[in-house]
Nucleic acid binder design. Sequence first.
DNA 1: TTCACATTTGGCATAATAACCAAATAATAA
DNA 2: TTATTATTTGGTTATTATGCCAAATGTGAA
Lengths: 111, 111
Amino acid sequence: MPNVKITKKQKTRFEARANILKALAHPTRLIMVEELSKKPHCVNELTKMIGADMSTVSKHLSILKNAGLIIDEKRGKQVFYSLRMQCVLNFLDCVEDVLKEQVKDRLAVMR
Amino acid sequence: MPNVKITKKQKTRFEARANILKALAHPTRLIMVEELSKKPHCVNELTKMIGADMSTVSKHLSILKNAGLIIDEKRGKQVFYSLRMQCVLNFLDCVEDVLKEQVKDRLAVMR
DNA sequence: TTCACATTTGGCATAATAACCAAATAATAA
DNA sequence: TTATTATTTGGTTATTATGCCAAATGTGAA
């Protein structure tokens, strides 16, 4: 039976997936993921790199943490975050591929 | 020099990536990607599957198209969409892995 | 304890998304 | 041409996301 209506259960599953993607779908949070993939950083370090209010940075971190993408570890009075799911890096490669295709398209339109 | 501030140029790059992820970060659009990975579908078919207003479905499709993730092809008075970037499927696998980790966490908390 | 530093939380203003309905456009059929 | 079907676009409203400031919390040092 083709074209079957999506069930409630399936929809719930897609919502869960979308929530993870939403956590990644912000430039600041992508920067964080990239930096944290190199090595753990504390909030203060990330704040300097990003150049936003520390409270903003902290909230972005908590979004990534809630999604299960990063982990936090307390060291003295600092909190160090690091990337938990390395596989997201592969998928940023795919995002790059999509961007390359976009460039091709733009060129094609201009011709 | 560690912890260097992110430049404007780099930020622009991350914004472009975030835009692609944003396009994917919606349950309905994830359903579309999955269905279109199986075979092309016209708007009407997708509308039935998803059970939303056709105008809503059409707008979701145009978001995916603008991101460069799907392509459209006109056949008579119908428009068929299909998945352009197959690599996104791999990365949905990673999303699944993250979800599995989330489940582990929830169980750990309960214990 | 008191102070200083690091991070998180609450509150609020603004911007971005999403859904629906109605109207417009495109393509074929009568 | 007119009618019919398929899709897109415009407009409105409701919800969600984001950023900053100020205040609260947590941790170690004096």
